[in-house]
Design a protein around this nucleic acid. Sequence first.
DNA 1: GTACTGATTTTCT
DNA 2: GAAAATCAGTACC
Length: 175
Amino acid sequence: MFLVHREEEGTTAGRIVEDEAYVEHDQAAHSSIGMTGRNRVLFGPPGHAYVFLSYGMHSCVNAVTGREGKGEAVLLRALEPVQGIGLMQARRKTEKVTSLCSGPGKLTQALHITLQHNGVSLTENSLQIWSADSMPGYEPPNEDEIVQTTRIGISKSKDLPFRFYIKGSRFVSRK
DNA sequence: GTACTGATTTTCT
DNA sequence: GAAAATCAGTACC
């Protein structure tokens, strides 16, 4: 799928090439400690953005996937830049296209996704960020083009194979 | 290419 | 008071 952000400055969009699943009873999931002020959106209805601040300085965005009360989501870890590349380069302060969205903190910076987007719907086209099923010129990957590995940057439940990325993509955070 | 380190601040106990 | 779903820069190979 694709993630799109629109504001006065311009529209930026990318194809999701890497993500990680965080599920119920998963010790690495923010929801595992129960509902708190930070994670309440995780327990809400699916199809909404859960945005949190990582290490005090980077925003990371999830798509809530579980039914209300479950606390499940998919962390978006990397995008292939599709639209608004010039704007992404300015925001990221680099020309290198493979480095614009190749990490959860990078892609939020490139698309200007902030804590203000926490809780917004990803399925209603009227808002600032939303998801799209398809874009012209892009074909969905076949199942044999999806690589499954362990998740990155966590200390608990690090052996669960819940990270997925598109095989051969130059835009993932790591191969 | 890999390995290590500092930046920075919210969050919860 | 410690941990944290990260990143950029540096050193080294």
